[in-house]
Design a protein around this nucleic acid. Structure first.
Length: 289
DNA sequence: CTCAGTGTTCAGTG
DNA sequence: TCACTGAACACTGA
């Protein structure tokens, strides 16, 4: 479920685990017209082979590798994308850790190659590490850019809760112009970069706001509540590395995902599932007036 | 067999 | 020009 929390976790793990690693080989499928729709496979190979990773950046749901030379690769995980890292250091510790948005595989796993089903791109690094970009549904995309922050797709993004979130006053001015359901507005990447379907529902649940409320009708107090809920939910999800098991027990997430649609909240309140702004929305009418 | 689904873009409409 | 809606993309799993 790659939304801001998962993507930020991926960025953090790439940056900390792959810093100073050199890309020795690039394995990709030349026939994969989806991932490489906007970057030619030959250019990807040329750009990455031999480069050293200095870090990783992110804005909204886009992330990129910072290399010791340009261009840099930018990625979007789409609906089902994921990043997997094989870290030889994990082998020494003999354990495997699973994150929300990415997996750290121990090289002790004999089925490492089997797990690479749906891998669209694999980077072989020195020191024995490997990184794989996995994407079953093929909605993921990749680009090459000399300056990710000025890339057209990233330029279009609005406020990122972890990078440049505005005051309640500025946020209120933006919302006042939007005459559609707040749920739909939360999903607008041109305003809230990184918020996706599950984060939006969790934020509205946290703020006790009815997802149907028109953004332009929110009171100043509701805007302040919404703003703090966005920050609270995103920061908490990121602080536990988007590990769903470690989300607070009170979160709607646990009742919404992987449960039947007749599941109720821990307090026994009814959860409604309906389409708002073209996306399925789970909410609790009893709480979100 | 049918259909929903973590996201985004684009064509069409108002 | 702007805001919004619905379809399309591709594949898996319930």
């Amino acid at each position: 479920m790659p939304e801001l929390a998962e993507v930020e976790t991926v960025r953090k793990q790439l940056a900390t685990r792959l810093k100073n690693h050199r890309i020795e080989d690039v394995i990709l499928d030349d026939s994969d017209r989806y991932l490489f729709a906007f970057a030619k496979t030959k250019d990807v190979r040329t750009a990455l082979t031999g480069a050293t990773i200095n870090g990783a950046g992110r804005k909204g749901k886009y992330f990129w590798l910072e290399l010791d030379r340009k261009p840099w690769p930018i990625f979007h995980l789409g609906m089902s994308g994921n990043i997997a890292i094989l870290d030889p250091k994990a082998k020494q510790r003999g354990h495997e850790k699973v994150w929300g948005g990415a997996k750290l595989w121990s090289s002790a796993d004999t089925d490492f190659r089997d797990r690479l089903a749906h891998s669209r791109l694999v980077l072989d690094l020195n020191k024995g590490a490997e990184v794989a970009y996995l994407d079953p549904r093929r909605f993921g995309r990749m680009w090459l850019s000399d300056d990710p922050l000025s890339h057209p797709r990233i330029q279009k993004l609005g406020f990122d809760p972890l990078l440049n979130f505005p005051s309640a006053h500025v946020l209120g001015e933006k919302l006042a112009k939007r005459k559609k359901a707040i749920k739909a507005v939360l999903l607008d990447q041109g305003l809230f970069a990184g918020i996706g379907n599950w984060l939006a529902d969790e934020i509205l649940f946290h703020a006790k706001l009815n997802p149907h409320t028109l953004a332009s009708k929110l009171t100043a107090k509701q805007v302040r509540t919404l703003r703090s809920s966005v920050l609270a939910v995103v920061k908490k999800a990121v602080s536990v590395d988007a590990d769903y098991e470690r989300f607070p027990k009170t979160w709607l997430f646990h009742e919404r995902w992987g449960k039947s649609k007749t599941a109720k909240t821990r307090k026994g309140q009814k959860i409604i599932h309906e389409e708002i702004g073209g996306r399925t929305t789970a909410w609790v009418p009893q709480l979100q007036k």
